[in-house]
Every structure is written in C-alpha cells, then in structure tokens.
C-alpha cells in the first residue's frame, strides 16, 4: 500500500513574485533557501507523489458555491492568478489517488467536493514551483483546497479530521508509492484590511512551536477569534498546517526557516513534519 513518508508546512506568498524587493536580501535568501532545503528533502525521501493542501483566496470559488473542502480527481491547471515567473499551465495530477481518497471519504463520512478538472490558485502552484519542480522529477500531485480565506471557514477540528482521513485513505491505496504532504499557508498576515503589512512574530512562533511539537490539543485550541486578532485573516490558512499535521499523525517536526517579512506582509514559517511510524 502507499504510505506518507514526509510532511511539510510552508508559505505560498504571491508577494514574493510581484514585489521581490519587499524583502531584504537576507530575508529573501533565507526564504528561498528554506524552499530549496525542503525540495532537497522531498528528493531524499524519494517521493512519488505529493498531496498539496492549499486554500482558496476568493479566486476559484465564488458566492454561488463555497465548498468547505475540495480534492482533485483528474486534471489540474494553475495558477489561475498568474504571477511574474509563474504562469498558468497544466500540473501533473495523480487523479487515481485523489479519486481513491474521495471514495474512501464518501464511505467514512467525508463528502468531498471533487474537481475532475480542477483549477488551482497560487496556494498550490507556489509550493509546486518551489518545492516539487526543483527536485527535477515531475512529481504528480493531489490538490486539496480548504475553506480558509472565505467564510464559512472550515473548522480547525474538521481540518484535523480531514488530515487523519487522508492518512487512512493513503494507507489503503493499492500501490507502493511514497507520498509527501504539504500544508501550504502563511502564518501571520493581513490580506486587504487596514492592518496589512503587520506581522506578529510571537504568534508565528507559537504556531511553529505547536507544529513542531505535534500538539493536536494546542492546535485545536486556537480559536478563530485568536487567529484573526493575533495573526490576521490570512493566518486562517494554518488550517492547512493542521491538516498536514494530522496526515502525518502529528509526530512533531523541526523548523526549517522563519522570517517575519513585513515587506511581503507575512510571517514566513517553514517546517518539516516527522511521520509517525
């Protein structure tokens, strides 16, 4: 059966692309170095496929239909919100794995919305660009999109349960493939509100501590009120971290890098997740 062999959390900051000068050279080097280190680890782990857990930014899904969680089961294309140096293109998809997870979900209480030809935004395309493409291997992906940017938000506990379900489903997928999971999101950041540009290193550190301790209780204890107050509306994306933690069975991990980059309006946190035996 397939198995999850590695996990990561990393930002998907589009500002890096359209305003690279927003960070100092040292900050930029540290962030791109962290992405490169994670790509090296994915290569070392000999990953055959990746499950990239992203989130919509009111780009993919409109008021007509706002799904709580979506999974790709066929072709993938993106990012629809093209960036300098990151143009829209087909992304190699592992449709069979996505379809298996969706089918297992239907059987066990997770009614996925499926994207049979899914468009993704930068939350999937940036980690694909900076963590998967540098491996030199065209690693197929399953794209998962959680409702983190548009209300009603996916509850943190549901994001966690979804991660556990993904782990169970991967373990019953009939192949010997090695899978890595990437939780894609920034920590503190404010998108479009009056606090845009504020970064909160104390909140960022708290989240990274929770992630690297594999602390389920502390993660689920983060209320939306606290996240919005201390981390901003963009920090709601740490639901992707919860999902990735649960998918690796919350075995802890290590910080790969952290930079509070006000010019990129984001607390940029990178961590590798251990996978429970």
């Amino acid at each position: 059966m397939a198995r999850i062999v590695g996990g990561f959390v990393a930002p998907h900051n589009p500002v890096m692309y359209f305003n690279p000068q927003g960070a100092t050279q040292e900050q930029s080097d540290a962030c791109y170095g962290a992405y490169a280190a994670m790509a090296d680890r994915i290569k070392e782990l000999e990953a055959d496929a990746a499950i990239v857990i992203g989130c919509d930014h009111y780009i993919l899904f409109g008021t007509e239909c706002l799904p709580p969680y979506v999974i790709s089961t066929g072709e993938i294309e993106g990012p629809v919100d093209q960036l300098p140096g990151l143009k829209r293109k087909p992304l190699l998809s592992h449709g069979a794995l996505g379809a298996h997870i969706a089918a297992e979900g239907s059987r066990t209480g997770f009614d996925w919305t499926v994207g049979r030809a899914l468009n993704v935004d930068h939350s999937v395309a940036v980690p694909h660009h900076l963590m998967l493409e540098p491996t030199g291997k065209d690693i197929p992906i399953v794209a998962v999109m959680l409702a983190c940017g548009v209300d009603p938000y996916l509850p943190m506990a549901r994001a966690w349960a979804l991660g556990e379900h993904i782990a169970d489903a991967v373990a019953s997928f009939p192949s010997d493939e090695r899978i890595v999971v990437i939780g894609s999101g920034g920590i503190s950041h404010h998108v479009g509100d009056e606090r845009m540009g504020e970064v909160n290193p104390a909140f960022d550190q708290k989240v990274l501590d929770i992630v690297t301790r594999g602390d389920k209780d502390a993660m689920l204890a983060l209320t939306d009120e606290e996240i919005l107050r201390d981390g901003g509306n963009g920090a709601m994306e740490i639901r992707t971290f919860a999902c990735a933690m649960a998918a690796t069975r919350a075995a802890g991990g290590r910080v790969v890098g952290y930079e509070p980059v006000e010019g990129w309006v984001t607390g940029m946190g990178f961590a590798e997740l251990e996978v429970a035996a």
Binding site: D151, V191, G192, M196, N233
Partner: peptide, 23 residues
C-alpha cells in the same frame, strides 16, 4: 471580504498606498 476589496482596487490600476490610507 477584504481579499475582494483589495483586488477590486488594484484591478483598477489604483495604488496600494492609497488603498491602505483609505482602509
């Protein structure tokens, strides 16, 4: 949602600096 208000402002070619002042 302020993701939309920000995008709405920028798509018109208006400056981010002015947006933040207004917000």
């Amino acid at each position: 949602n302020t993701m939309l208000t920000w995008g709405f402002w920028l798509q018109a070619g208006k400056s981010n600096r002015d947006y933040l002042k207004i917000m």
